[in-house]
Simulated scan of single mutants.
Amino acid sequence: MTKIITAITLFICSLLSAQTQFEQGMGKAFGLWKEGKNTEASAMFERIASADKTSYLPNYYVALVNTTSAFAEKDKSKVDLLLTKAQDVLDVEFIKDQNNSELYVLQALLYTAWVVQDPMTNAQKYSGKIMENYAKAKTLNPNNPRAVFGEADYQLGGAKWTGVDTKPLCAQVDKAVELFATFKPETPFSPKWGLERALEAQKNCKK
């Protein structure tokens, strides 16, 4: 009986230790990202992902870091590398779970990065996929502020070319801002980004 209790205690301790290592690693990776060390942050998230196959978050942040980096990158070959890496790890998480609203939001954002890189070539190719992914994200979680805002923001970005009425889109931006106020992330590391961009879009809507 003592052996069983000892074994259980050791198992619980190992779980707590693993959890602590995960939290420490994630904290360090976020710190690097905040410092603008995107490559180092991505590498740290990758290491965490290889050590912990249970959480989607490390690979999610590998994809998010590389996708957001691509928006600011001017070198086409570097953009290709960043977005390919992002897509590879996102595909890994989609295989595990096709019902995660956040993954579809990120997939839409990744496709948007391709459009921004080369609008003339990629807008027609990816616009439909972007809207499909936001629609799926909203179906899975209608209260996901990133899904509501992302869908409206993408359409607002193209409004001057498509000529769509922006009032309903601006109403969706307002809704997203309200959702951000009540949104509660599942864990300390769960996605909670997007409010600043939504507030900026809200200001532009009122101009």
Rank of each mutant, 00 (worst) to 15 (best):
K3G: 12
K3P: 02
K3S: 06
T6P: 02
T6S: 10
A7F: 10
I8N: 09
L10N: 06
L10F: 10
F11L: 13
F11V: 05
I12Y: 11
C13Q: 09
A18I: 13
A18P: 04
T20M: 07
F22S: 12
Q24E: 15
G25Q: 09
M26N: 09
G27P: 09
G27F: 13
G27T: 12
K28Y: 13
L32Q: 04
L32A: 11
W33C: 01
K37S: 08
K37L: 05
K37C: 01
N38P: 03
T39H: 11
T39N: 06
T39E: 14
E40N: 11
A41Q: 08
M44K: 09
M44F: 07
E46N: 01
E46H: 05
I48S: 04
A49K: 01
S50M: 08
A51H: 00
T54R: 05
N59L: 05
N59Q: 01
Y61G: 02
A63K: 09
L64K: 02
V65R: 04
T67D: 11
K74R: 10
K76I: 13
L82V: 12
K85P: 08
K85H: 13
A86Q: 14
Q87M: 15
D88W: 11
D91M: 15
D91L: 15
E93Y: 13
D97S: 12
L103Y: 12
L103C: 07
L106I: 04
L106C: 06
Q107K: 09
L109C: 01
L110V: 00
Y111M: 02
Y111P: 03
T112S: 02
T112E: 11
Q117H: 05
Q117G: 01
Q117I: 00
D118G: 03
P119V: 04
M120Q: 06
T121Q: 07
A123I: 06
Q124L: 13
Y126V: 06
S127M: 04
S127P: 13
S127Y: 07
M131W: 03
E132T: 02
E132W: 01
N133K: 15
A135W: 07
A135Y: 07
K136R: 02
K138C: 10
K138D: 13
N141P: 06
P142Y: 00
N143T: 08
P145W: 08
V148N: 04
E151Q: 15
A152L: 07
A152T: 00
A152Y: 14
D153H: 14
Q155M: 10
G158T: 06
G158D: 06
W161T: 15
G163Q: 12
V164R: 05
T166I: 13
T166A: 08
P168V: 00
L169K: 15
A171V: 12
A171S: 11
A171F: 13
A171G: 08
V173L: 09
V173H: 06
D174Y: 09
K175N: 15
F180A: 05
F180K: 12
T182A: 08
T182Y: 08
F183S: 02
F183E: 03
K184A: 07
K184F: 05
K184V: 04
E186D: 13
P188I: 14
P188M: 11
P191M: 03
P191R: 00
W193G: 02
G194S: 05
L195Q: 04
A198F: 05
L199E: 00
E200H: 02
E200R: 00
K203M: 10
N204C: 01
N204D: 10
C205Y: 07
K206A: 14
